[in-house]
Measured scan of single mutants.
Amino acid sequence: EVDTLELTRQVKEKLAKNGICQRIFGEKVLGLSQGSVSDMLSRPKPWSKLTQKGREPFIRMQLWLSDQL
């Protein structure tokens, strides 16, 4: 189980620290539009309420944070 709230907090922190905009992060890392990324980072759904497809971007965020992506 992933703590989506904590994960998105860490992602936002790393984006800010490295000067990466959400649009680029969305396109290059998540394969999503800036609007989708913005929504996901500001209002993450609980892991238990996400479908497999809904969980994929959060898994990619985890990999990106651990420099595996």
Rank of each mutant, 00 (worst) to 15 (best):
S42T: 07
P44Y: 12
V11Q: 05
T8E: 05
S48W: 02
P44I: 09
Q10E: 06
V37S: 05
K53C: 02
V11M: 07
S48T: 10
I20H: 02
P57A: 13
L50M: 05
M40C: 12
A16M: 12
E1V: 06
R55F: 01
K53F: 02
V2H: 06
T51V: 09
C21S: 15
I20D: 02
E6T: 08
F25W: 11
D39V: 02
L50Y: 06
L69Y: 10
R23M: 06
E27T: 08
T51A: 09
L30H: 01
K28C: 04
R23Y: 09
E13P: 08
C21R: 10
Q34I: 13
L50A: 01
K28T: 10
F58R: 00
S66Y: 13
L30N: 02
R43W: 06
P46T: 10
K45A: 08
M61V: 02
W64R: 00
W47P: 00
R55A: 02
K28E: 12
E13F: 07
K45C: 05
M40T: 05
G31W: 03
L30V: 04
R60T: 06
L41D: 03
D67Q: 15
G26A: 15
Q10C: 03
Q62V: 03
T8W: 06
L63P: 01
L63A: 15
P46M: 06
K45H: 04
C21H: 12
L69I: 05
L50N: 00
L41H: 03
S48R: 08
I24G: 03
K53R: 10
L7D: 11
K14P: 06
G54Q: 15
Q22F: 07
P57L: 15
Q34M: 11
K17T: 08
T4R: 08
D39C: 08
P46G: 15
G31F: 03
S36H: 11
K53N: 05
V29Q: 02
G26I: 04
E56F: 03
W47S: 00
L32K: 07
L63N: 13
E1R: 09
P57S: 12
Q52M: 09
G26D: 03
L7Y: 06
K28D: 07
A16Q: 11
R55V: 02
D67T: 03
S38T: 13
L15R: 11
I59H: 15
L63C: 08
A16S: 13
E1T: 05
T8Q: 03
F58C: 00
R23W: 07
D39W: 03
Q62M: 08
A16E: 09
K14R: 11
L41G: 09
G31T: 04
Q68N: 11
L5Y: 12
K45W: 03
D67I: 01
G35V: 11
W64Y: 03
M40S: 06
Q34G: 15
T8A: 11
N18G: 09
F58W: 09
I24Q: 14
I20E: 01
P57G: 02
S48C: 13
I59P: 00
D39L: 05
I59T: 11
V37E: 02
V11T: 07
T51F: 13
L50S: 00
L5N: 14
Q52R: 14
V37T: 13
L5A: 14
K28A: 06
